[in-house]
Amino acid sequence: MMPDLGKYADAVLSAYGVSILLLVALVLLTIVQGRRARRALIAIEKRSRNDG
């Protein structure tokens, strides 16, 4: 299954590894921040509705 990368295996694998890691980190960070903002907004909106 694994293709023979020859003597350049280090280069190719590290390129894929680091890139995919960065992409996944970016997506996860984005979603975590998004969830947090959504929760915070819902809490505040509920509070201000109760007040008003």
Binding site: P3, D4, L5, G6, K7, Y8, A9, A11, V12, A15, Y16, S19
Partner: peptide
């Protein structure tokens, strides 16, 4: 060689 695969990223 195999480094051409890096092109996809």
């Amino acid at each position: 060689g195999s480094t051409v695969k890096i092109i996809y990223l």
